[in-house]
Design a protein around this nucleic acid. Structure first.
Lengths: 127, 127
DNA sequence: TACATAATGTTATAATATAACAATAATTAA
DNA sequence: TTAATTATTGTTATATTATAACATTATGTA
């Protein structure tokens, strides 16, 4: 169950349909009484923690989870267009299976991963 | 061939043996006459571009490339310990082959990727 | 009820990164 | 070898991203 601020901020991110930055969220919610960056970042932290949203690390921006709503997200993969900055979440069973079971040479087993692919989306590769 | 500032900053990063942040680099090179953040960031950008260093996106920090010195780096993978923050670059042929040839459902071919695994390193998992 | 935990509000400030402009050095082409 | 081009440097100011510290209120639980 999301708290008031968490819900407000999640709604903005979900409606956005594109990655959105913390201060852009802040701007959008000021009319709703959320005035300080920290209020936004706290909600973002929580939403990331419970897997409702993901952070696109290379862009410092946030998107709603499109895969497994409400699950803790430990395995994320995105494709990012370097021209128009379109981001989409990759949902590929083979890929996630492969990465979830990946072990490095030291035998270290991982709890989490984040993968970001970069290239040109369809639209941009035509241009 | 690296320029003066690029060389100075690369040397710091290579000696560090652990991820190092831009402003920590700045602090370290002030005695060598590099006084402004922008001087550091410009060198970092170039070093990333030519593959001498990588940026650990989730940590906003930089490490020297341990794999293929002097090659443009389009395919990076790291393991990150969430306890001690130790980072090591993963060099795994099977993994990189798999990811380099990965296509998403839209048939989008990627030019680049960055993968970050999170877990506990050997030392920290004993504790 | 009492206790613990989570969420909120607020001010200030830290940490990360780029814009804009001017000058100099290095490379390349005519 | 001069002119043109490109890369690098220097500098000041500022934008962007994120957290510290403290006080308060709400929610869940024993």
């Amino acid at each position: 169950m999301l708290s008031k601020n968490q819900q407000i901020i999640f709604d903005i991110i979900e409606k956005a349909k594109e990655p959105i930055k913390a201060y852009s969220i802040l701007f959008n919610v000021q009319k709703k009484g959320i005035k300080a960056p920290l209020q936004v970042y706290r909600a973002l932290d929580k939403l990331v923690e419970i897997g409702k949203i993901h952070k696109i690390e290379s862009r410092n921006s946030f998107v709603a989870c499109k895969n497994s709503n409400c699950q803790i997200s430990k395995a994320t993969a995105f494709s990012i267009c370097e021209s128009c900055e379109e981001v989409s979440e990759i949902s590929d069973n083979k890929l996630s299976k492969y990465l979830k079971s990946f072990q490095n040479k030291a035998g270290m087993k991982f709890k989490k991963y984040n993968l970001e692919f970069f290239g040109l989306c369809k639209k941009c590769s035509i241009k």
